[in-house]
Simulated assay, not measured.
Amino acid sequence: MRQALLIIDVQPGFAPPEWLVDGIRALIGTLPSVATVERHDESITPFEKQLGWHPAPDDDSLIPADRIFIKHGYAPTPQTIDYLKSLNLERVLVCGLQTETCCLAAGFALFDAGLQPTLITDLTVGSSLDRTGGLGVRLWEHHFKHTVRSSDL
């Protein structure tokens, strides 16, 4: 199956658990990989104004992915989606941080682009609302259907 890994916002400013970083790193080199890094620019996305917090302006990915794309906000950039489409994939495996927000936003962007988003349920962490990621997994299954565990890969 032609597939790639999309790693969402695994960066120092969000303090991902070590098990998540280790689990994702174990997949690097086994398939094409793309990581997003969320950076703050209030003129692009008003996190501070609307939410009273913001990501770091200069974070980098903790995962050595083949390609890294900077984003400002929840969803991956059009350039990220275009790159993934150029790989002629059957599915995009999504993992990383904020299952019910940033990962879900990536799922919608992938779906809208005609790609098959597939969440790796044991390599994702939810927001402070639900650190287990359970809410995000249920939303993912409702909207996109496709999930796997890292042991299935």
Score class of each variant (00 low, 15 high):
Asn88Asp: 12
Gly52Phe: 01
Val10Leu: 01
Ile68Asp: 06
Ile44Gln: 06
Trp140Val: 12
Ile70Val: 12
Ile81Leu: 05
His54Val: 00
Arg131Asn: 14
Pro76Cys: 11
Phe69Leu: 02
Asp9Thr: 02
Asp130Asn: 08
Leu123Glu: 02
Phe69Gly: 00
Asn88Phe: 10
Leu104Asn: 05
Ile28Tyr: 06
Leu27Lys: 12
Ala15Arg: 13
Gly136Tyr: 10
Ile8Ser: 06
Gln11Ser: 09
Thr36Cys: 04
Lys49Phe: 03
Tyr83Gly: 04
Gly73Cys: 03
Leu6Arg: 00
Asp66Gln: 04
Pro57Met: 04
Ala56Tyr: 04
Ala65Ser: 03
Ile7Tyr: 00
Val37Ser: 05
Gly134Arg: 12
Thr36Pro: 02
Leu104His: 08
Tyr83Phe: 11
Asp41Ile: 07
Pro57Phe: 00
Val125Cys: 13
Met1Gln: 15
Glu141Ile: 11
Leu123Asp: 03
Ala56Arg: 09
Pro78Thr: 04
Val21Ser: 10
Ser33Asn: 09
Thr80Glu: 01
His142Phe: 15
Gly133Lys: 13
Ile68Leu: 03
Pro32Trp: 02
Pro76Phe: 08
Val10Ile: 11
Ile70Tyr: 05
Val137Met: 12
Arg91Pro: 03
Gly23Leu: 02
Cys95Met: 09
Leu153Arg: 15
Arg67Cys: 07
Arg138Asn: 13
Ser127Asn: 12
Thr101Asp: 07
His146Ala: 15
Ala106Ser: 13
Lys85Pro: 08
His143Trp: 06
Arg25Cys: 07
Thr36Tyr: 00
Ile28His: 06
Arg91His: 09
Ile8Trp: 03
Pro55Glu: 11
Pro32Ala: 03
Val34Asn: 07
Glu100His: 10
Pro57Gln: 07
Gly126Ser: 14
Leu97Ala: 04
Phe111Asp: 14
Pro12Lys: 08
Gly29Cys: 07
Thr80Ala: 08
Leu31Ser: 08
Ala113Tyr: 00
Gly23Asp: 06
Ser43Leu: 03
Ala56His: 07
Asn88Ile: 13
Asp66Glu: 05
Leu135Ala: 15
Ser150Gly: 04
Ala75Val: 10
Thr124Arg: 02
Val21Lys: 06
Thr36His: 08
Ser43Pro: 00
Leu139Ala: 15
Gly134Tyr: 10
Thr77Ser: 15
Val94Arg: 00
Arg25Phe: 01
Gly52Leu: 02
His72Asn: 09
Ser150Trp: 01
Thr118Tyr: 08
Trp140Asp: 14
Leu129Thr: 14
Ile24Thr: 03
Glu18Gly: 10
His72Gly: 04
Thr124Val: 09
Leu129Asp: 15
Ala35Cys: 01
Thr99Gln: 03
Gly126Trp: 13
Thr121Ala: 14
Ile81Cys: 11
Asp22Asn: 11
Pro117Val: 01
Pro78Lys: 04
Thr132Met: 15
Gln98His: 05
Leu115Asp: 08
Gly126Cys: 11
